[in-house]
Design a protein around this nucleic acid. Structure first.
Length: 271
DNA sequence: CCGACAACCTGACGGC
DNA sequence: TGCCGTCAGGTTGTCG
């Protein structure tokens, strides 16, 4: 589920119950996800006050007054459950606040991660250090993309999935943005004209903003009986719509590019 | 640098 | 009903 908009939505959903609260109970229910949990996770977090939440790319950030930031990544199947009635399978990490609220990290496939990083050193932290700019930030524009893609012969789709180029896009929103921009996923990245890169930047921004907007509206019921966070409407133009009609009337195609599905409209995205 | 592929895991779904 | 193959929103590493 989680690309940038999903993580953003989840962070916004967690903020009201965590911000300013003291963590009275921290329980890791297994030793690792994709990699081991920090050995001192519990002692460093228990008793700490959450000072703020944030996001960098697909990473969620929970800052504490002890100078540590809990950094979580949701992998393919991660989500947070809010005040669940009971803990169940794949509930790997529990945070309980001084108000008795509970946030539970659930991740069946365990491709996610949980780390504890000194807040001041966060930008230098290995996973974030080599990361490209935020697609919704000012640094990300056509001029930047032009330089970053210069001389690259790899397909634009692969380049947009590369977090070192731009941070936070995944398979869905790359497909969506390329379609909105009218660019073929296979187009050599370094051979896209500046005007078309400008269009691409705007498309990426628009697609992400719309998804965050949609997530935001569904947040109102984030405390549904199931207590799950991460419920998103699917307003996709091409993703998951193989065989259906594109807005142009032509059929949406699906192709496999090195193990990942690419959805596109051959008519709207000729080059 | 590039492309293809495997690995890490579980669950959902379609076909038979 | 059940078994089996396929696929899934991510990341990382290897090999040619």
């Amino acid at each position: 589920m989680p690309e940038l908009p999903e993580v953003e939505t989840i962070v916004r959903g967690l903020a009201p119950m965590l911000e300013g609260r003291r963590l009275v109970r921290v329980e890791a229910r297994r030793a690792d996800l994709r990699r081991a949990f920090p050995a001192d996770l519990r002692q460093r977090l228990t008793g700490a006050r959450v000072t703020g939440l944030g996001r960098r790319a697909k990473y969620g950030l929970i800052d504490t007054d002890r100078g540590d930031t809990l950094v979580f990544h949701l992998g393919m199947s991660g989500r947070w459950r809010i005040d669940p009635e009971a803990l169940g399978p794949h509930d790997h990490l529990l945070l309980e606040t001084d108000e008795g609220r509970r946030a539970v990290l659930n991740d069946p496939r365990r491709f996610g991660s949980v780390d504890l990083v000194a807040t001041a050193a966060l930008p230098q932290w290995e996973a974030l250090a080599r990361m490209g700019p935020e697609p919704l930030g000012a640094e990300f524009d056509a001029a930047y993309l032009l330089r970053a893609l210069e001389g690259r012969s790899a397909p634009i789709k692969a380049m947009l999935l590369d977090q070192r180029i731009v941070a936070g896009l995944g398979n869905i929103y790359v497909c969506e943005a390329l379609h909105l921009a009218g660019i073929a996923p296979s187009r050599a990245a370094g051979r896209i004209s500046r005007p078309r890169l400008e269009r691409l930047v705007e498309a990426i921004r628009a697609v992400l903003a719309a998804a965050i907007e949609a997530g935001g509206s569904s947040l109102r019921d984030y405390a549904r009986p199931s207590g799950e966070l991460g419920y998103f409407s699917k307003q996709w133009r091409v993703y998951g719509r193989e065989g259906e009609a594109c807005t142009c009337g032509g059929p949406i195609r699906r192709r496999n590019d090195s193990g990942r599905s690419t959805f596109f409209c051959p008519r709207c995205q000729r080059s």
